[in-house]
């Protein structure tokens, strides 16, 4: 891919005979942003080498000895390896799929509201996003607690159902975690889609209505095509994070309860628990490096496919 991109640039360059001078003002505009990326993101990337080093501060991080792939071993040490990778990937797939569908549906609904209520909706659905995950874990406990939780006390008890011991029953947790993740994130991502929708040129809809399109047809033939680029972008970016997980969601919300590890242990929680005592920069860098590398590979594959199918929507 990295090869392909400059090749493209070369292809387009001769076409624009105006040459470099023509584009210079645009490059100048980019300087602040690029400079910041260099400082904030690229310079610290020397830290990526930590993944392959045995850090000794006495000789300095630059002169620490290399140790090959030793730092990666702990991720694959046990049979937990399968569980943590499976959990991380599966949850992310569900989050990406359901999260985007939900957000698009809500964005389309928001777009149809023309009353003052729009402001209220827009403000309120963002609330969950504003709460810290610690607070969310307390709220979850308020609902799920065995002795005085809402669900057991106020919903199941009147129905005559036996109270459920939520925190010691793994089978409920995939649903609980997916629900909480969607609840926390849908406001944010639907606003992203909503912003794109609002920018859609009204004449497209006018034309569709003149052609006698129903609401559903307008959505299908006007709205969704306009959202296509945004959808693809957000999905590709989410795929890049495929091997990461929201630490708070998987650690704090299930209260680090050992009974639930089969369905709550992800790469990040495993690394956290395993390295808490060791405080090992090399190993935590190694875990991060692997997560990034795998995500990067997936993104590259997705991007190549996107480029084949729809060049305009490809990320780069």
């Amino acid at each position: 891919m990295a090869k392909q991109a400059p090749a493209n640039a070369l292809k387009t360059a001769p076409k624009k005979q105006g040459g470099f001078a023509k584009w210079l003002p645009l490059y100048v505009l980019m300087i602040p942003g690029l400079a910041y990326l260099v400082i904030n993101n690229y310079l610290p990337m020397f830290g990526l080498t930590f993944a392959f080093k045995k850090i000794n501060y006495n000789v300095g991080v630059f002169n620490s000895p290399w140790c090959g792939l030793d730092n990666f071993g702990f991720l694959f040490k046990t049979k937990d390896a399968f569980i943590i990778f499976r959990n991380t990937i599966c949850y992310n797939l569900v989050f990406i799929l359901l999260g985007n569908v939900l957000a698009i549906v809500i964005a389309i609904m928001l777009e149809q509201i023309r009353t003052k209520a729009l402001k209220v909706y827009q403000t309120c659905i963002l609330i969950p996003y504003l709460l810290s995950i610690t607070v969310v874990s307390y709220l979850a406990f308020a609902f799920l607690s065995t002795d005085n939780g809402f669900i057991n006390n106020s919903i199941l008890a009147p129905l005559g159902v036996e109270p459920i011991s939520w925190y010691s029953t793994p089978k409920y947790w995939p649903f609980i975690l997916v629900f909480i993740n969607l609840w926390k994130g849908f406001g944010y991502s639907s606003i992203l889609y909503f912003a794109t929708l609002i920018g859609v040129d009204g004449s497209y809809y006018e034309a569709a209505v003149i052609d006698g399109a129903s609401t559903w047809q307008q959505i299908k033939y006007v709205t969704l095509p306009c959202l296509k680029t945004t959808i693809i972008t957000l999905v590709i970016m989410a795929i890049g994070r495929m091997f990461y997980s929201d630490f708070g969601l998987f650690y704090q919300v299930p209260m680090n309860n050992g009974m639930l590890f089969d369905v709550t242990n992800t790469i990040d929680t495993y690394v956290y628990r395993g390295l808490l005592q060791l405080n090992d920069v090399g190993r935590s860098s190694a875990a991060g490096f692997l997560q990034s590398l795998l995500g990067f590979t997936l993104v590259m594959i997705t991007n190549v496919i996107t480029r084949k199918v729809d060049p305009d929507s490809a990320l780069f």
Binding site: G258, L276, Q277
Partner: peptide, 28 residues
């Protein structure tokens, strides 16, 4: 100094996290 066996330490720490407290809390 357990750096020589730190892979095992990470793995065992996770195992202890999984079982020790639920046993001691009588929740199994």
């Amino acid at each position: 100094d357990l750096t020589g066996v730190s892979d095992a330490v990470s793995a065992c720490t996770n195992v202890v996290n999984q079982y020790a407290n639920p046993l001691a809390a009588g929740s199994v």
